[in-house]
Amino acid sequence: MDSYRFGAGRYIQEENALDYCGEEIKRYGCKAYVIGGNTAINVTEKRMRESFTKSELEYCIEKFSGYPSIQKIEELKNSVKETSCDVIVGVGGGRIMDLVKATAFELGVPIVAIPTQAATCAAYSPLSVLYTPEGHSDKYIHFEYEVNAIIVDDKVMLTQTPRLLAAGILDGMAKYIEIATLHPQVLDENTPIAQNSAFYMAKYTYDILKQKGEKAVANLKAGIWTKDLHDIIYVNIALTGIVSALMQGKGQTALGHAFNNALHRDFLEYIKKWLHGEGVALGLLAQLVYNEKEDQVEELKQLMTKFHMPCSLADIGLSINDENFDKLYQRLCTFPFMTHDRKHEELLKEAINSLGGWKNDIKGNE
Rank of each mutant, 00 (worst) to 15 (best):
A8M: 13
E50Y: 06
L158F: 04
Y145V: 13
D2R: 09
Y206A: 08
L347F: 13
L182Q: 14
P162I: 13
L328S: 02
Y124V: 14
T53H: 11
R5L: 12
E82F: 12
Q296F: 09
S125T: 15
I41S: 01
C85H: 00
A198Y: 02
E298A: 13
V89G: 04
D315T: 08
Y176M: 13
A123N: 09
T339P: 05
E278M: 08
P133M: 06
D315P: 02
W274Y: 15
Q252D: 12
S125V: 15
I352Y: 04
L347K: 11
L170R: 00
L328C: 05
T39K: 10
K139M: 15
A40Q: 03
K250W: 00
D138H: 14
N196S: 15
E366N: 10
Y290G: 01
H340M: 13
L285V: 10
K63F: 06
P115H: 08
A222H: 04
A40M: 03
N190L: 15
A281M: 03
L282N: 04
L255N: 01
D341K: 01
T53V: 06
I12K: 01
V156F: 07
G90F: 00
I12T: 09
L57T: 04
Y176C: 07
T339K: 14
K272H: 10
K306P: 02
E323D: 11
Y131V: 02
P162C: 06
S128P: 00
Y329M: 06
E269C: 11
Q195E: 15
N261G: 10
I320Y: 09
R49T: 13
I25D: 04
A118E: 11
E178I: 09
C333D: 11
H344P: 05
M173I: 13
G172D: 07
R163D: 09
W225Y: 15
E278Q: 14
K210H: 12
L165S: 01
I179R: 00
I141E: 05
L99G: 05
L313S: 03
V112M: 10
A40L: 07
C85W: 04
K139W: 01
S354A: 10
